[in-house]
């Protein structure tokens, strides 16, 4: 996993609440057995005017000029600014894979759906919860100012505007540690393999029917 430390990134504002993972990456792209290559189909049904299928040459497709991701001013954006309940619906990890593959490293919203939020951390993507008022402010600033960037510092747990206004965000110590160092969580857990084994033996003795 790519570590996440600091980022100074262009902000793309996606002004919709309840953006679900079906919209982030439509089901036809879930047939892939790979982890990469989902970026060109991120928000496929909003981003293109024609219907997308896996294997199509996306550079030849008809893009939707009215969808925010396609505005020239947001090309190369690394911070996705979103509304409430972002990432709701299906558990598909293809959603954070697509967002990350497109080039985003952080998503800021007033709230996220649980599974999506969790999935982000496994992929070097930082989801940041800020209050509705702050997110409102960032939306107005990002929409008003071309080239609007936010500075994100994971160590300090802050998001800073170009005017120097800083907002702090929460993250658990465990997630922060993994993200800062780009750690493989499975390796970390297996360091406790003995504890897991002891627990399992005890469980087997108490509820043998679970171990057929």
């Amino acid at each position: 996993m790519k570590p996440f430390t600091q980022l100074n990134g262009l902000v793309c504002p996606l002004d919709r609440a309840n953006v679900d993972t079906d919209a982030i990456i439509p089901k036809q792209f879930l047939k892939s057995i790979k982890r990469s290559g989902f970026g060109p189909n991120l928000f496929d049904e909003w981003r293109y005017l024609d219907h997308g299928e896996p294997g199509m040459d996306n550079s030849k497709r008809q893009i939707n000029p009215e969808f925010v991701l396609n505005f020239p001013r947001y090309a190369g954006a690394q911070v996705l600014l979103a509304r409430d309940n972002f990432g709701c619906g299906s558990s598909r990890e293809h959603a954070p894979w697509a967002i990350e593959d497109y080039g985003f490293r952080a998503v800021i919203a007033p709230s996220f759906a649980d599974i999506f939020f969790n999935n982000c951390f496994k992929n070097g993507l930082l989801p940041i919860v800020l209050s509705t008022e702050v997110v409102d402010q960032l939306f107005s600033e990002a929409e008003a100012t071309e080239g609007y960037q936010l500075a994100i510092d994971l160590e300090q747990q802050t998001v800073t505007t170009p005017a120097g206004q800083s907002f702090s965000f929460d993250i658990t110590a465990h997630r922060k540690h993994c993200l800062l160092n780009g750690l493989d969580e499975i390796g970390l857990t297996l360091a406790h393999a003995e504890e897991i084994r002891v627990f399992e033996e005890k469980r087997k003795a108490q509820q043998p029917w679970l171990f057929v």
Partner: peptide
Amino acid sequence: GIGTSEVEHVMATQTLV
């Protein structure tokens, strides 16, 4: 429900973080 990274984590460790 869990994501695919967690599917792999559960397969490898029988646990979830």
